[in-house]
Amino acid sequence: MIKCGNHSINFETPLVMGILNITPDSFFDGGNYTNEKAILKRAEEILSEDADIIDIGAFSTRPGANDVSEVEEYCRLAPAVKSIRNEFPQAILSIDTFRSSIAKKIVNEFGACIINDISGGTLDDEMFHAVGELKVPYIMMHIKGTPQSMQQNPYYDDLIAEIKKFFTERIGKLSMYGVKDVILDPGFGFGKTLEHNYEILARLIEFSDLNLPILAGLSRKSMIYKYLGGTPDTSLNGTTALNMISLENGASILRVHDVKEAVECVRLHEMIKSQQYSFL
C-alpha cells in the first residue's frame, strides 16, 4: 500500500492508469487535449471507464521528441491540473515529469500527486530530494540515455540484471531522502530494442524480488506495430494481449490510452486467478 495525500492505494488488484497527454506531439494522441474543455472531457472519460489514476504529461518523451522548456511545461500542466482538481477533487493524479521544479510547483499548488519520472532521477539530480520533501509516491522508470539518444543502438551485457542494478542502487538513494512509496517501471521502449522489450515482458516476474509494485507501460508502443505491422492507431489488440501477459507476470499497474479495455483485462485476469485458487 502507498499513500497519496488522503488516498491509500493498495495493489491487491492491479490498477489502471489512464494517460492524458496535454502535448502537441505525443506519439499517439498528440494535440488532442490542448484546451480546458478537451482536457476535462478526457479526464471524465478516464474516470468513467474506472481508471484508478490519471497520468498527466506535458512533455512528450517519444524518441527524438523536441525539447520543452520548464516554463512551457509548467504553463501546460498548471491549468490542466487546476481544472481537473476543481472538477474531480477525489481523482488520484500522477504528474509525468522528470523535473524536480515542476514536481514541487504542482504539488505545492494543487496538492499531493504521484510523480512519474521517466528518467528515474537521472535527468535531474534534485528529484529525489524533492520527492522526499513533498512526501509523495514516486514512479521510477529505467531509461538508458535521454529521449533524444535512447534509441541509438542501445546495448546491454545482461538486460534484466542491469535494470535491476539500476533500480537497486536508486532505491537506496531514495531511501536516504525518506522515500518509501516507490513504483518501478522497467521502461518499455526507453533505450531498448524490440527484442529487449519482449525479453523484459517475458521476464517481468523477476523484478518482483525487489518487493515493489511494477508498472507496465506498453500502450500502443512501437514494439507492437513494428513487429505486427501497422501504426499506433491499429495497436489496441496487441496492447491488450501484452497487458494480459504483463498481469500474468506480476504487473501491478497498467498505464494505458484505452482505459475500458485495460479494466476489462484486469477483471478477466482476476477471474482466472480466482478460479485457479478455488482448486488449491
Rank of each mutant, 00 (worst) to 15 (best):
A65Q: 11
K173T: 04
T239Y: 05
A58S: 15
L194N: 14
D52M: 04
S26L: 05
F11I: 04
K173D: 01
L20D: 02
L47C: 03
K82Y: 01
I95F: 01
K41L: 03
E70N: 04
T234M: 02
R220H: 10
S69L: 08
T168S: 15
Y33K: 04
K226H: 12
Q152G: 01
A38Y: 00
S219I: 05
R267D: 12
F188I: 14
L254F: 09
L236F: 04
N153Q: 11
I9D: 00
G132S: 09
D55L: 11
A51V: 14
E169M: 12
V71T: 15
P89H: 05
T231S: 15
E206V: 15
D55R: 09
E36Y: 00
G189F: 13
I92W: 05
N6H: 13
N211C: 14
P147A: 07
H7E: 06
Y177N: 03
C75P: 00
M17H: 06
S246I: 10
A130F: 09
L47W: 06
D52T: 04
D117E: 06
K104D: 06
L268N: 12
L47I: 13
N197H: 11
E261K: 13
M176K: 15
L210Y: 12
S94L: 13
E126M: 12
E169V: 13
Q276S: 04
E206P: 15
E126C: 12
L280V: 14
K173E: 07
F190W: 11
M244K: 12
I22N: 04
L77A: 05
Y33Q: 02
N153T: 08
L204P: 03
A65D: 11
D158A: 12
G111A: 09
I245N: 04
T193L: 11
I102W: 01
A80P: 05
N6D: 14
F98D: 08
Y138N: 05
Y33I: 02
Y177R: 00
A112W: 00
E72K: 12
E126F: 10
K37S: 09
C113S: 09
I118V: 15
S48P: 07
E73P: 09
H7Q: 09
I95Q: 00
A78S: 10
I205D: 11
L268A: 09
G64Q: 13
L40H: 10
P137H: 00
I19P: 05
E87S: 14
S26V: 11
N237C: 08
V182L: 08
M127A: 07
N66M: 07
D157H: 12
E87M: 08
M244P: 00
M150F: 09
